Simulated scan of single mutants.
Amino acid sequence: MNKVSKTLLLVLVSTAASVLAGIAIAAYLTIPSIPLISEGDRLLVFDPEIGARPNPSSHARRIYPAVRDRQTFAFDIYTDDRGARVDGPGQRSPAQVDVLVVGDSFSWGYALANPETYARQLARELGTGVSNFAMAAYGTTQSLQMLRRNGDLKPKLIVYGIIAHHFERNVMPCLPSYYPFCFDASHVTWNAAGEPYIAPPESNGVRRFQRHLAGDFTNPVTWLTHGVDVIRGRIEYAQATYSTPTDRKKEEALGYLLREMERSATAIGAKLLVVYLPTNYYSAPEALPRLIGDIRLLDLTQAFRRERDKGANLYIVGDGHPNRAAHELITREIAKYVRENGLL
């Protein structure tokens, strides 16, 4: 081997080593581990329109070790053949339901068994069929898309559980995640004419998240391809973080989505009820009533505060999600509103 060949080889080896070291640092060594153990089936599957949707006919178990002031807890998630959350395995979706629930983890029932969630309790309280298509991290955007996907169930009532953070989620291409890389999702953006529309996810954040959570990178090809994908996800995450739309744009996006949700509900002969679920007893954003317009809004802030003033705690300690008592309260308030307004 002559001197030129040796030099070229050295450059190639050095370059390859530098690239591999960069991938190791950016995609593995600087990604923190998360306090989560996932067992059973995958909780989510990638959807090219929504980004992530519940894995149909599945059973996943999530275990969260104790951190700081939060105790260890675990819960099981069963889904039917459409992906709606149900009590146990092997259940199939009915051909028609009276109530369809959409929303995020507050409505999905994070940390709770399905019989404890307000969606399941509403079925018992109202004596009617209820399908819960909420999912953790969803915003109004994904809730609208899940409503449209399952409109053939011909519900009479759509219950959308909204929280304050949906203002931000609706315009973010990356949904909340445990990892500092993009968990890609559909989101509202604007065309050249300034008109809002729903853009699809930019890449497969579900696969990225699940591979990293599994942590099996012994295969060199998987290590390399996943590492490159994580770097891509970190770039997407950084771009999303540093290009956050203004508050006015966030409000415009929510208004657009709510109108589309009302239009979609009307098209299938259903009524829409938006239920504001407070985070840490905080009031709804000031813009929400204006953006809601004549859409039905049930604001549960005062109901939550009344229970707090009686000495009750309605949130999981060290976590912030509604606990079992909160879901019981939400059930009572929604059921009362439905009966008083003849929504079923």
Results as ranks from 00 to 15, higher is better:
residue 32 P to L: 09
residue 76 D to H: 11
residue 180 P to N: 04
residue 92 R to H: 14
residue 152 D to M: 03
residue 18 S to L: 15
residue 146 M to Y: 02
residue 287 A to D: 05
residue 265 A to P: 01
residue 271 K to F: 12
residue 31 I to F: 06
residue 240 A to H: 08
residue 6 K to F: 12
residue 75 F to I: 08
residue 178 Y to L: 15
residue 336 K to T: 14
residue 178 Y to K: 14
residue 221 V to M: 08
residue 159 V to G: 01
residue 156 K to R: 11
residue 135 M to R: 10
residue 193 A to K: 04
residue 234 R to N: 07
residue 163 I to F: 10
residue 121 Q to F: 13
residue 308 R to K: 11
residue 120 R to V: 03
residue 147 L to Y: 07
residue 165 H to T: 01
residue 153 L to S: 07
residue 287 A to C: 08
residue 297 L to E: 02
residue 234 R to L: 00
residue 250 K to S: 05
residue 213 L to K: 00
residue 131 S to D: 13
residue 29 L to C: 01
residue 275 V to G: 04
residue 153 L to F: 02
residue 269 G to L: 10
residue 229 D to N: 04
residue 341 N to R: 11
residue 342 G to M: 09
residue 13 V to T: 09
residue 233 G to A: 02
residue 176 P to N: 06
residue 305 R to K: 14
residue 240 A to K: 11
residue 277 L to W: 01
residue 181 F to K: 04
residue 180 P to Y: 00
residue 30 T to E: 13
residue 160 Y to W: 06
residue 6 K to Y: 05
residue 343 L to R: 04
residue 27 A to Q: 10
residue 215 G to Y: 11
residue 106 F to D: 06
residue 169 R to T: 06
residue 133 F to P: 09
residue 261 M to G: 04
residue 125 E to C: 05
residue 103 G to Y: 07
residue 266 T to P: 03
residue 130 V to M: 14
residue 198 I to S: 05
residue 61 R to E: 05
residue 138 Y to W: 04
residue 9 L to F: 12
residue 39 E to D: 09
residue 287 A to W: 10
residue 255 G to D: 09
residue 77 I to S: 09
residue 31 I to S: 02
residue 76 D to V: 07
residue 153 L to E: 06
residue 145 Q to I: 13
residue 104 D to Q: 12
residue 184 D to A: 12
residue 62 R to Q: 13
residue 337 Y to D: 10
residue 80 D to G: 10
residue 236 E to Q: 09
residue 26 A to W: 05
residue 116 E to A: 15
residue 296 R to M: 12
residue 315 Y to C: 08
residue 300 L to I: 07
residue 142 Q to Y: 06
residue 160 Y to H: 13
residue 108 W to I: 11
residue 146 M to E: 15
residue 18 S to M: 15
residue 279 T to K: 07
residue 136 A to N: 14
residue 205 G to S: 08
residue 245 P to Y: 04
residue 271 K to A: 02
residue 76 D to F: 08
residue 133 F to S: 04
residue 234 R to V: 00
residue 166 H to L: 10
residue 149 R to N: 13
residue 191 N to M: 13
residue 79 T to F: 03
residue 98 D to H: 14
residue 66 A to H: 01
residue 51 G to K: 00
residue 163 I to K: 00
residue 232 R to F: 05
residue 257 L to R: 00
residue 248 R to Y: 06
residue 218 T to E: 15
residue 190 W to S: 03
residue 230 V to G: 02
residue 111 A to I: 01
residue 195 E to M: 11
residue 233 G to T: 03
residue 192 A to T: 12
residue 174 C to D: 01
residue 195 E to H: 02
